[in-house]
Deep mutational scan, measured.
Amino acid sequence: YDEVAAQGEVVRKLKAEKSPKAKINEAVECLLSLKAQYKEKTGKEYIPGQPP
């Protein structure tokens, strides 16, 4: 859960800094992968601010 939240912060920071699109896309792919792992382990969708 904490990893997903941390990666979400990374994506937000990159977007706020107007980073190159390729770098943002890479961070988003990582975030989506973490969300998929979270769902696989818990059986639930990741919802920000609602730990399992």
Rank of each mutant, 00 (worst) to 15 (best):
Y1S: 10
Y1G: 00
D2A: 03
D2F: 15
D2V: 14
E3I: 04
V4E: 00
V4K: 00
A5W: 07
A5N: 07
A6G: 05
A6H: 10
A6D: 02
A6F: 02
A6M: 14
A6K: 15
Q7I: 00
G8T: 14
G8M: 15
G8Q: 15
G8S: 15
E9P: 03
E9M: 06
E9Y: 02
E9L: 10
E9A: 15
V10M: 08
V10S: 08
V11N: 01
V11I: 05
V11L: 08
V11T: 04
V11F: 02
R12N: 06
R12E: 12
R12Y: 01
R12C: 03
K13D: 03
K13V: 06
K13R: 09
L14M: 06
L14R: 03
L14W: 01
K15W: 08
A16R: 11
A16F: 09
E17S: 11
K18P: 05
K18T: 06
K18R: 09
S19F: 11
S19I: 15
P20Y: 01
K21V: 13
K21H: 11
A22E: 14
A22K: 13
A22F: 11
A22G: 11
A22R: 10
I24H: 01
I24S: 06
I24P: 03
I24F: 04
I24L: 09
E26L: 06
E26Y: 02
A27R: 02
A27Y: 00
A27L: 00
V28A: 10
V28F: 03
E29M: 07
C30H: 11
C30G: 08
L31A: 09
L31N: 08
L31S: 05
L32N: 14
L32R: 13
L32Q: 12
S33Y: 07
S33V: 10
L34A: 10
L34C: 04
L34R: 07
K35P: 02
A36V: 07
A36Q: 13
A36W: 02
A36M: 12
Q37L: 09
Q37D: 13
Y38Q: 05
Y38F: 09
Y38K: 06
Y38I: 01
Y38S: 03
E40V: 06
E40F: 04
E40C: 07
K41Y: 04
K41S: 12
K41C: 09
T42G: 04
T42H: 14
G43M: 04
G43I: 04
G43W: 00
K44D: 03
E45H: 09
E45Q: 07
E45L: 05
E45W: 00
Y46D: 05
Y46K: 02
Y46P: 03
Y46I: 01
I47A: 13
I47V: 13
I47C: 13
P48H: 10
P48N: 06
P48R: 07
P48W: 04
P48D: 15
Q50P: 08
Q50E: 15
Q50L: 11
P51Q: 08
P52L: 08
P52H: 06
P52G: 03
P52R: 11
P52V: 02
